[in-house]
């Protein structure tokens, strides 16, 4: 190997740079240092070149935005206006984005009649339309319907990709699965930045402007209810539902997690969720579990009710029941 220790210019260079009191470096050293700096700058330019085509980076306001619970009403007004503006700019659609608040003394719960569900997936399509889920990403839908043999309760024997001309198939039954809105949600517990939490009306929500996209909540969910925005969603303007909620169906940015939120932009205004409205068989019952005379409590008292993965002790607000 070459030994450079005899090279006088080298020794000179390192000593004089180390000690600023000395005289300037040799020409050869200057040239070397210059070339080195050029190479470093060229490398840096090459590394960061793709960033020039970044189109959906955060604005300064978005970057500095606080956590949902720290926002004053005035701040929220500005944020909603900004989001409307962004959607108009990116998708060319005029929308209304509102921050719907929980209704006092209301706790939402869902009950689904497994005898009635016929596996038509109408709820899935209605959900996608309502919640601005791109139609070319069916796997992103918040609801998945599992087809099972009548003699089985084991989800691992089920099929979520069934594709028949006619439903229901002979000898099969269907379990639609979406966020179970647990009373002890494992997902909110693990989030490192509290970007997901349970609201007073029992809906677990996500602040899409706070989520850092670590996907720990997806690993934690025992129901596979959460989806990630692997890319920026693409829409034709006419596919977009313009009635949006900040914590619910507004168009999500790339890189954050989303899931079913019981259509809170509808349900907090007294309407049914889109899936319940779309169900052709009336299998889906949505209501306020704190209303003792409500439909949900009638079902809980009178039907054979069960919950998914009871052993996980997540205590869902989503119930499945049998009529007969």
């Amino acid at each position: 190997m070459p030994n450079d220790s005899d090279d006088p210019s080298r020794t000179g260079s390192s000593s004089c740079r180390a000690d600023p009191g000395q005289e300037g470096m040799g020409r050869r050293e200057l040239l070397k240092a210059g070339m080195g700096t050029m190479a470093a700058l060229a490398t840096l330019a090459g590394v960061t070149a793709p960033l020039l085509s970044l189109r959906d980076g955060p604005s300064l306001d978005e970057f500095l935005q606080r956590h949902y619970t720290q926002l004053t009403p005035e701040m929220m007004e500005k944020i909603l206006a900004r989001i409307e503006h962004e959607i108009a700019f990116r998708y060319g659609v005029k929308t209304s984005v509102r921050d719907y608040k929980p209704i006092p003394d209301v706790e939402f719960a869902y009950a689904l009649n497994l005898n009635r569900c016929n596996g038509s997936r109408r709820c899935v399509y209605a959900c996608m339309k309502e919640n601005n889920i791109p139609l070319d990403h069916p796997e992103q839908a918040y609801i998945r319907v599992v087809e099972l043999d009548n003699d089985s309760l084991d989800l691992e024997e089920g099929n979520v990709l069934y594709n028949h001309d006619q439903v229901p198939q002979e000898g099969k039954y269907y379990i639609p699965i979406q966020c179970q809105q647990c009373r002890k949600p494992p997902c909110t517990k693990v989030c490192p930045v509290q970007a997901t939490w349970t609201e007073p009306d029992g809906v677990t929500v996500i602040d899409y402007n706070w989520c850092i996209g670590c996907r720990y909540c997806m690993a934690a969910c025992p129901y596979e209810a959460r989806r990630f925005n692997w890319s920026r969603p693409k829409f034709e303007p006419e596919q977009i539902n313009p009635d949006m909620g900040y914590l619910s169906n507004r168009i999500r940015p790339r890189g954050v997690v989303e899931k079913c939120h019981f259509c809170l932009h509808r349900t907090r205004q007294g309407k049914n969720p889109a899936c319940a409205e779309a169900c052709p068989t009336g299998a889906r019952v949505f209501g306020n579990i704190r209303d003792p005379k409500g439909k949900i409590n009638f079902i809980l008292k009178n039907k054979r009710v069960y919950i998914l993965k009871a052993d996980a002790k997540t205590i869902p607000r989503f119930y499945y029941f049998f009529d007969r």
Partner: peptide, 26 residues
């Protein structure tokens, strides 16, 4: 691995919302 590395600062205590001690990632 983060979807939003630009929001890494959300993990800073006080400045962000650090979910400590609940989250093992924290």
């Amino acid at each position: 691995d983060l979807g939003r590395p630009d929001r890494f600062w959300h993990m800073t205590p006080y400045l962000g919302k650090f979910n400590f001690p609940s989250s093992m990632l924290a």
